Simulated assay, not measured.
Amino acid sequence: MKNMVLAAVAAASAFATGGCATVLNGTNVDYTTETRPDGATAKFTSGQECKTPCTLEMKRKTDQRVDLFAAGYKPTYVLIQSKLGGGSFGNILLGGGIGAVVDGTNGSSNRLYPRPLIVQLAREGTSDEAVLLDEKGTVVSTVQAHNDSVRLDVAKTIGPKLAGLED
């Protein structure tokens, strides 16, 4: 009986000192990037590169910029914002102050936005703009409008030049 009590206390201690999001989500996430048309080069500020469609492992806590290039299409970039997710509120509600600190520090309670990244590229020689699509293919916003909405926040981590605040 004494061993069972010790095991229960040890398990509760481990749970209390680790963050729930760290346990459930981890600090990385599979991040999918797609373009219309397929086959664009995607270059991330993390140094990762792929041809679309592709899925890369990304840090949840890291803002990014991805530059997209395809022959016959205007080059564009999308700012990827690391946002606080709902897991942190679970820590607070369940009294896991230590867990909230752990999750906040390692970024496991964050999510990347937009995710997945689906971009309809704009053809060169047209007045069209690149747009973000949802998983059903519906236009969510222009890439420019999205970048404008997150630019100041993302600039804090990737710098004003990469965020498009400076030439």
Rank of each mutant, 00 (worst) to 15 (best):
S82E: 02
I92R: 10
A70M: 13
A8D: 01
I118H: 00
A8K: 03
A16C: 10
V23E: 07
A130T: 11
F89P: 00
N28Q: 13
L56A: 04
T45C: 04
V154H: 07
T157C: 04
V23L: 14
L112Q: 00
R60P: 01
E166H: 01
K136P: 07
Q64W: 07
C50G: 06
R115T: 13
Y73C: 11
D30I: 01
T138L: 14
T76K: 09
T76P: 10
I98G: 09
L162P: 09
G107W: 03
P116K: 03
I92C: 05
S88E: 06
S149H: 13
V23H: 10
V154Y: 10
T41M: 12
G164C: 05
N28L: 12
T27P: 07
L6Q: 08
T41S: 14
E129Y: 12
V66A: 01
F15A: 08
N110L: 03
S108H: 05
L152S: 13
P53V: 08
S141F: 14
D38E: 12
V131Q: 15
I92G: 03
Q120C: 01
D134E: 15
K156N: 09
T105I: 14
A163N: 01
T32S: 13
N91H: 08
N28P: 03
V139I: 15
G164N: 06
V154F: 08
M58V: 01
T52Y: 00
G99L: 05
Y31K: 00
G159E: 07
V66R: 01
G86Q: 05
V66G: 00
D38Y: 11
G85D: 01
A155T: 02
L68K: 11
A155V: 04
G159N: 06
T157K: 13
T138D: 15
T33W: 06
A7D: 02
K43D: 12
T52P: 00
S108G: 07
L24D: 06
D67Q: 13
H146L: 13
L132V: 13
T22I: 03
A100I: 03
M58D: 02
G86K: 05
T126E: 10
H146M: 11
Q48I: 00
T33C: 06
